[in-house]
């Protein structure tokens, strides 16, 4: 890898009180690459993501975005390059669908006039397969799959360079999960964005990932291309991707 990685984490550690979650995460994501982080619940996937986003400050280690270290000072500037799809959508329920999608364009620096922001929002909604009629509904009036699409539209609204997906298919039926997976793959390819996804849905992994990293007990246990995943003899990866109850990963966590 000669190019500077888009995201680089080295030795990232984080503990909450006496509970250590990350014990030195080393990870690199190249520009335009789609990395999926897999791992059981409570192994530190979300915390890893939130450390890169700057929502959680790591206790130790370094995080670089596009070659420059991420600090509290340049966090604002970095965040404008990020898009994030939250697990439950995290749509603002006091706002209509289009206001959600256009949030970044309507608040903060370089805000756009209402009509223009609305137009872009409707365009983004169409891109994720929603009709303009949904624009004036409230998130509570939408189904889970539609909320996910709105969340996706909001994440890509300002054409971010890096997009994070937190369990994009959780809570969706298999068909809708398939649709969202395809949509994510398409969008990432089309926008040339770098993507970082956390999931434990193996269908999702195969649909979205260029590369896979498995996290276990706060460390990267294994990483490699998605094709290598099935060939690896790592017992942890094998147990996880085949969903076996028996294996090195304890079933009770």
């Amino acid at each position: 890898m000669t190019q500077t990685p888009m995201i680089r984490m080295s030795g990232v550690e984080k503990a909450f009180g006496s509970k250590t979650v990350l014990r030195g995460v080393d990870l690199e994501v190249a520009k335009g690459e789609s990395l999926v982080i897999i791992g059981g619940s409570g192994t530190g996937k979300s915390v890893t993501l939130k450390c890169v986003l700057g929502i959680i400050h790591p206790d130790a280690g370094e995080i670089e975005i596009g070659g420059a270290p991420a600090t509290r000072r340049n966090r604002e500037a970095l965040l404008s390059r990020f898009g994030m799809l939250f697990q439950g959508g995290a749509l603002f329920d006091s706002m209509t669908v289009w206001e959600n999608v256009a949030f970044r364009m309507r608040h903060g620096h370089g805000r756009l006039p209402r009509a223009q922001a609305r137009e872009i929002a409707i365009e983004k909604l169409r891109r994720v397969g929603l009709t303009p009629e949904t624009a004036d509904l409230f998130p509570a009036e939408l189904s889970g799959g539609m909320q996910k699409r709105v969340g996706l539209a909001r994440a890509i609204a300002t054409n971010p360079e890096i997009i994070f997906f937190d369990e994009p298919t959780t809570g969706l039926d298999p068909i809708m999960a398939g649709v969202i997976n395809d949509l994510i793959r398409e969008l990432v390819t089309e926008m040339g964005a770098t993507a970082m996804t956390i999931t434990h849905d193996m269908t999702s992994v195969r649909a979205i990932a260029d590369r896979v990293a498995m996290i276990h007990e706060g460390k990267i246990r294994w990483q490699g291309d998605v094709e290598e995943m099935d060939r690896t003899d790592d017992p942890y990866v094998d147990q996880f991707i085949h969903g076996k109850a028996e294996g090195p990963i304890a079933a009770i966590r």
Binding site: K50, L53, G54, I55, E76, L79, S80, F82, G83, M84, F86, Q87, G88, A90, L91, F92, D93, F103, R104, H107, G108, H109, R154, F164
Partner: peptide, 18 residues
């Protein structure tokens, strides 16, 4: 609880300010 406060942050909006 529904991560809307985190979502604000990722949309470059300081929750304390907003």
């Amino acid at each position: 609880v529904t991560e809307q406060i985190d979502a604000l942050t990722t949309l470059s909006t300081n929750p304390l300010k907003y």
